[in-house]
């Protein structure tokens, strides 16, 4: 292997790692705030990507109707969960979140989609369609289980993953999609061949990480989320509703998932079910990073991306074997350093 191959593999690993890092960040966030291991996060990647691809081709994406359906289900769930202590304001709020917002997005899409919108419009529209599904799902599936053990939340997330994958097949069909890149530029630097899209990915990933950092450090909502992550009860006592924190965390996770999908679909072929594999990498990074540490998750994501890239060069048939065996020593090191823990289940 010469230096140029090394460089190319490193570049590939970093681009993939950047996506894993975004997913890992949102998984960490969701877990910290709600204790949910968000297995269905990967579906948001696929949904975002395929919705974007459909919009760029001037089609009306099927996921639109899922948004409507989830809105109705969210309304029902919200009414049921808050039965007895609804106020006029809370009902109006609920209606706005579950009916008005999805309806507006659906209307906008129905108008814009046939016009074959530009790439940026298509991307924004896709984000608008996919992101709200995540908090709606939180309201429907997880909010009532706020005090359930982690295992039950995990299996609920698995159920969600199954249902969403099935829906993905219905909406997008079994075949893959690829979308036009934001930029057709190809930058050559020595042996490196940097597609414009790869630069977009790294730039947006970095920007998003900085934005998240600023959000957690500087805004009241961000601080509230961190407080909830540290101590749910405590956060509630000082007036931060856990439900609100959960909704925000899920919305961020949905947003990041959909964005990741939109970013990579110009570089590769995605199918309705490819989100899971990508999500699994993010999950891996999140856990190696400690499920609580944001910088740790980013580092681990890059590590996963690089291992994957190099393993696919050295022994492609055993790539998964190598990637997943390589993380075991890391896990061992992390848990030994961590010492025995009392898992509060």
């Amino acid at each position: 292997m010469d230096a140029s191959i090394l460089l190319i593999l490193a570049q590939d690993g970093i681009v993939n790692g950047a996506i894993y890092a975004l997913l890992a960040l949102s998984l960490v966030l969701v877990f910290a705030v709600t204790r949910v291991i968000y297995v269905a996060q990967g579906e948001f990647v696929a949904f975002g990507a395929l919705t974007y691809a459909a919009l760029t081709e001037g089609q009306t994406p099927g996921a639109l109707w899922l948004l409507g359906g989830l809105g109705l289900a969210g309304l029902a769930a919200g009414l049921w969960q808050g039965r007895g202590d609804h106020t006029r304001a809370s009902i109006l709020r609920l209606l706005a979140e579950t009916i008005l917002l999805p309806a507006a997005i659906i209307a906008a899409t129905l108008i814009l989609a046939p016009l074959k919108p530009g790439l940026i419009t298509a991307a924004l529209l896709s984000l608008a369609i996919i992101t709200p599904m995540s908090p709606l799902l939180y309201r429907i599936a997880f909010q009532p289980l706020a005090d359930a053990p982690v295992l039950v939340l995990l299996i609920t997330a698995v159920g969600l993953h199954l249902a969403l994958t099935g829906l993905g097949l219905v909406f997008f069909g079994p075949e893959g999609y690829r979308a036009p890149p934001f930029s057709d530029a190809m930058i050559t630097a020595g042996p490196l061949l940097l597609p414009g899209q790869a630069i977009w990915i790294i730039a947006i990933a970095l920007a998003l990480m900085l934005a998240l950092y600023a959000f957690f450090e500087a805004t009241l909502t961000g601080k509230a989320l961190r407080a909830t992550a540290v101590n749910r009860l405590g956060a509630r006592l000082v007036g931060i509703p856990t439900e609100q924190a959960g909704l925000i965390a899920f919305a961020l996770a949905g947003f990041i998932g959909a964005l990741s999908g939109i970013l990579i679909v110009p570089l590769t072929t995605l199918t309705y079910d490819s989100g899971f594999t990508i999500g699994l990498r993010g999950f891996t990074a999140a856990i190696i990073g400690g499920l609580g540490s944001y910088p740790g998750a980013v580092l681990a994501a890059l590590l996963v991306g690089l291992t994957e890239s190099f393993a696919s060069f050295w022994a492609s048939a055993f790539k998964e074997v190598i990637v997943f065996t390589a993380i075991i020593p890391v896990l061992l090191w992390r848990s030994l350093r961590h010492g025995p823990t009392e898992d509060d289940e």
Binding site: I5, I8, L9, D12, V15, N16, I19, P174, E175, G176, Y177, R178, I264, L267, T268, T269, L270, T271, D273, S274, F276, T277, I278, E308, S309, F310, A311, S312, F313, W314, S316, K319, E320
Partner: peptide
């Protein structure tokens, strides 16, 4: 490579390094 892989750069570099006259890709669908 796996059906769901999002990148095959490593494999492709290996193929390129072996300088073949042709490449056969055995996969199904998109």
């Amino acid at each position: 490579y796996a059906r769901a892989d999002t990148s095959v750069t490593g494999q492709v570099l290996k193929l390129l390094a072996s300088k073949p006259d042709a490449v056969l890709i055995a996969g199904s669908g998109t």
